[in-house]
Design a protein around this nucleic acid. Structure first.
Lengths: 283, 283
DNA sequence: CGTAAGATTATGTACATACATTATCGCCGA
DNA sequence: TCGGCGATAATGTATGTACATAATCTTACG
């Protein structure tokens, strides 16, 4: 079976009858759908289903298969590559799960339209960010008190009177304040937090490491620093600050509500949205 | 097979010998690993592998299985539920792919530690956001010109002299300006854009719908509005603005570089990071 | 001409089997 | 005691087979 390196099994070749199409051979013809099969070749690296994934993702990422177009069906691909239908199925089903393809029974498999919604910005722990930049990270707890919801502070998604731990702390990079954090923790959800002194590990990390969460809502906005915040962060009043509000839920009840405020010119959110397949393909 | 609703097949029961463990029966004992199997039951809804996924994800999300703990192996789970190893394998492998589990050959399957990196903020098209809020979305192109990199504007990741289309436009919600956009498009990567008038569809949407991309880098920061920007957006100079810079790459070359600037109190990024499994479980 | 029933087709799930791969464990010998 | 090496146990991949499910298409009938 020329051109296709197998990654193991017996080493003996797949048979599959009269070997309808030499798997992996470059082709210039069109599939029954009018889809170019040019370049749809296996590279012999890794598992078969992964090779097929790469080949198909490559066609899409290279723009040879356009949004909305229909793919050859599983039987055709399986013939084309000389692999079983399940192997093709696994590859295609995974690509569908990753959002590259849309599959409909009886109708077929189509290249997904509009990946508009797929931009995503990872939000990292500030300690990690500072450390990764090679700076010294420190934090300081400015205030810590237990109270009940509605007493001075109100957490909208929590019933009045629920016990809350309120924390206020500052985060430093090389000694410079970069972020202010005001956090509420639902003591009904995380009673252990009452015992935790937070003298070595920051509240955000402690919570994330310890408490499972099922959803996290974020709101990111820009605000002008109030005089109080400006003083804490060592900037002029009115300086643009990034405000991040995060509410974490677990078992459909709120776990923690945080409000981060970071100095605009000392902190930014950044990250790369990239598909696994693109990474593998070095595109 | 008591308690387990099958979703189809023949309706006849799986046999599997002496039916070692009644599938789906609630148990209070411990697995050989000391892991509580309490609550690890199938709910009869949907495909078997999905039921197993839900059951396992549920244990983790409910905190019954803690980070680092070892799961029963595939054979044990397959006995426990009376399904084949492949069905268990599919469920567990998918959960590993989603980041709930870490699998190591010979060593076993473990609950993943630290989902710290898993917060993500979806960045939507502004047209979609405005429309979803029930407001009227409009945009206006203020400037459009072709130039070469280095002539007045420099796009760092593109070689000097490369042809660029530069666009400047404003986005409105119910007639109020909310976002300013300055965009560079690599004409070598997207020559068709030269012909596009953008009189009905906004550049961002046109590009995302048309040009495949393999990675998108974002940087979000807060800045104070310059006098010029303040005038365009109808706010006071110095008002906090959210600045989003996005560079989209394709085939390892830059496609477009955008700079969005939005008024802090008229626009925010928000979204929910939630695992599929959590959604299904209503946690 | 429209509609309903049935045939067809493509994907979806499940199981059995077989073998590959890779740590890990434990034994044995230096 | 340490190092190596083989047995072993766990996951990973691939195939064949069978049937389920859901659209779509076709055909026949009113």
């Amino acid at each position: 079976m020329q051109g296709v390196a197998r990654q193991g099994l017996t080493g003996q070749d797949r048979v599959g009858g009269p070997a309808p199409t030499p798997a992996g051979a470059p082709r210039d013809d069109l599939s029954p759908n009018g889809l170019s099969l040019d370049g749809l070749t296996l590279d012999g690296r890794g598992a078969l289903f992964d090779q097929i994934k790469r080949a198909v993702a490559g066609q899409i990422l290279r723009g040879r298969w356009q949004a909305g177009q229909r793919l050859p069906n599983e039987a055709e691909l399986s013939n084309l590559y000389g692999v079983s239908r399940q192997t093709v199925h696994k590859a295609i089903a995974l690509l569908a799960r990753e959002g590259f393809l849309v599959r409909r029974r009886r109708a077929g498999t189509f290249v997904a339209t509009g990946r508009r919604d797929r931009f995503a910005l990872p939000i990292e722990d500030i300690g990690d960010v500072v450390a990764r930049e090679g700076r010294v990270y420190e934090f300081r707890i400015r205030e810590r008190k237990s109270l009940r919801n509605g007493q001075g502070i109100r957490w909208p998604d929590l019933p009045d009177g629920a016990p809350i731990l309120a924390l206020e702390c500052l985060h430093f990079s090389d000694g410079t304040p970069i972020q202010h954090e005001r956090r509420l923790v639902n003591l009904d959800a995380v009673p252990e937090v009452a015992e935790e002194p937070f003298d070595s590990v920051a509240p955000s990390r402690w919570l994330v490491d310890r408490v499972p969460w099922s959803s996290a809502d974020h709101t990111v906005r820009a605000v002008n620093a109030t005089a109080e915040m400006a003083a804490l962060l060592g900037v002029e009043a009115g300086a643009a600050c990034l405000s991040i509000r995060r509410q974490t839920m677990h078992l459909s009840r709120p776990v923690t509500l945080v409000h981060f405020l970071s100095v605009g010119d000392r902190f930014s959110l950044s990250g790369s949205s990239i598909t696994d397949s693109a990474t593998e393909l070095n595109l």
